[in-house]
Nucleic acid binder design. Structure first.
Length: 278
DNA sequence: GGCATCCTGACC
DNA sequence: GGTCAGGATGCC
């Protein structure tokens, strides 16, 4: 799915298109399991109708559509979801599983080929719980090298699975963890607690750089991801290691390695990313 | 930690 | 046919 840069792009694109609009109807919804309390489907639909969209934002990989009456529609795109405002003549294909019809005749489509995506309608307490379940936002000012160091301290586990844990740090996924570790020259299997101070600083800078650059390029379209306008992103042309196993490392020329680590395809340079001790 | 599961589609 | 895919969760 969409990781932090992709969800951030969608949030920004939706904000300019739908803020201030009112949801007049909920259409399609042919995959009830996407609503996290499917037995309350009628309540979900009923509560959304008539709500005004105050703002669109993001927390971790959750897209947050802020509504009146203190409600937030939280959408998670998981692996293959995309959320966008189609062009005026855009018809939903069979993978569109939720449509929010707006008072100007336009609509928000939730498109999800694999049907892993999720929708939650949250009140203030639910929103606070979602927030509390996630680690710090890596692009906020409060996220410093010291913050990252604290999150890694005492953790004997390998670095990559830890960085994928949304409770440790918010928003990173498989692409940007591989890219950040390459940029910081750190092997994905290093024990988190073993990083030198300089390496923590390098990793902090690398995480921010890969996320910031990707947002500037509207995210990475590897397969299904689309911006809030239904278009492909541009960052996929700039991967250094992700999905590039066997190709030369852009830094040292050695072949990029691919391995499975914690059930995730993992791409790294075995030459210039410093390996674990022993 | 490892593994299965939720799904569909692309590619070999 | 098998393998793999921007994710997350639950179970040994």
């Amino acid at each position: 799915m969409p990781e932090l840069p992709e969800v951030e792009t969608v949030a920004r694109d939706l904000a300019v298109q739908v803020e201030g609009r009112t949801i007049v109807a909920v259409e399609r919804l042919d995959w009830p399991r996407m609503v996290e309390v499917p037995e309350d489907l009628a309540a979900f639909v009923g509560a959304l109708a008539g709500r005004r969209i105050l703002a669109v934002g993001r927390r971790a990989k959750w897209l947050l559509i802020r509504l009146d009456q203190g409600l937030t529609l939280a959408l998670h795109l998981r692996m293959s979801g995309s959320v966008y405002v189609p062009p005026p003549d855009g018809a939903p294909d069979r993978h569109v599983h939720l449509i929010l019809r707006l008072d100007d005749g336009r609509a928000i489509f939730f498109h999800d080929t694999r049907k892993f995506g999720r929708a939650r309608l949250l009140d203030a307490a639910g929103m606070a719980a979602l927030d509390a379940a996630h680690g710090p936002e890596p692009l906020e000012d409060a996220f410093t090298p010291a913050t990252l160091g604290e999150r890694l301290a005492g953790r004997a586990t390998r670095l990559k699975p830890l960085l994928l844990d949304q409770a440790v740090i918010a928003g990173l996924g498989n692409i940007y963890v591989d890219e950040a570790l390459w940029l910081a020259r750190i092997h994905p299997e290093r024990a988190a607690a073993d990083l030198a101070r300089k390496e923590v600083h390098a990793l902090h800078a690398a995480i921010r750089e890969v996320l910031t650059l990707s947002i500037a390029r509207k995210g990475s379209t590897f397969r299904d991801y689309r911006t809030g306008y239904g278009e492909a992103g541009g960052n996929q042309a700039f991967f250094n290691v992700y999905a590039r196993g066997g190709e030369p490392c852009p830094r040292c020329g050695a072949p990029i390695a691919r391995m499975m680590l914690a059930q995730r395809g993992t791409h790294f340079c075995p030459t210039c990313q410093r390996a674990p001790r022993g």
